[in-house]
Amino acid sequence: MIRRAGTSPPPWRPVRWFAPAIGIVTFLALWEGFVRWRDIRPFVLTAPTDIVRYLGRAPGDFAEASLLTARHALVGFVVALVASIGLGALLSTSRFLERAVQPVLVLVQVAPFVAYISSIVLWLGYGDPPVHFVTAFVCVPAFTFATVAGMRSADPSSRELLASVDTPRWEVMWRLRLPSAMPSLFTTARYNTGLALIAAYLVEGSNFADAGLGAIGKRFAANNIGDGLWATVFCMVVLGTVALGLIGLFERWLLHWHASQRSLA
């Protein structure tokens, strides 16, 4: 029986865990030391121990806000992914369509969404809708570009092979082009994870709702509560780390066949 790359566990090497742990602990220690040494105001920079202490004062509230922000980001992310795969599949069939739509997507990608959040809130009202909308909206361009590039990269030999038995277009899409787009979609998913979380945080802070990390962060900032603000930053970092970890797991499962997932050992 052949050992399958990707399904077999990687050899346990202490350095895999040890090195990153040392890196993070060193970073936190320098941070803590710097804040104590220069006696920096909490609003400018809060020491890690103070952040943890502040979180400890209302762990339930922070957990609840984190879950809401995670849900906002996830909904936007998934809506964007599904819409982009559809849009990308359409664009990959026609150079004309691609050329026509590409500049619009670039505009969306480079427009500073922070600047138009209030307009979206005015348009869609308070609560979830503007958060979901902006989060999805900002993730669409990168996902669409990844879909188009990935689908175009489908192996020419395989395309010709499928053409030799008159494979219908949708089947070529489903069996060849979509799987070919998976590697670039995963790469983009990592980038869009950060974008989706940031968008969710910022819109939460602007949509006059009172829930979500962005909303409570905004309140802390307005009331000059530095350690509270930094506690929301800490929660965002945790969310991002968990999200990237999950994407890594999905990738190992779905892309076990791809060169990027094979260990060099």
């Binding site: 192996d155 030999s157 395989s158 010709e160 092979l161 053409a163 030799s164 038995v165 008159d166 069996r175 060849l176 799987p179 066949w257 791809h258």
Partner: peptide, 19 residues
């Protein structure tokens, strides 16, 4: 022939689907 899958092609690159 193509429509009835009565024609087989073996390309230079094997063109296997890696997944």
């Amino acid at each position: 022939l193509r429509a009835h899958k009565r024609l087989a092609v073996v390309p230079q690159q094997p063109g296997l689907l890696p997944w």
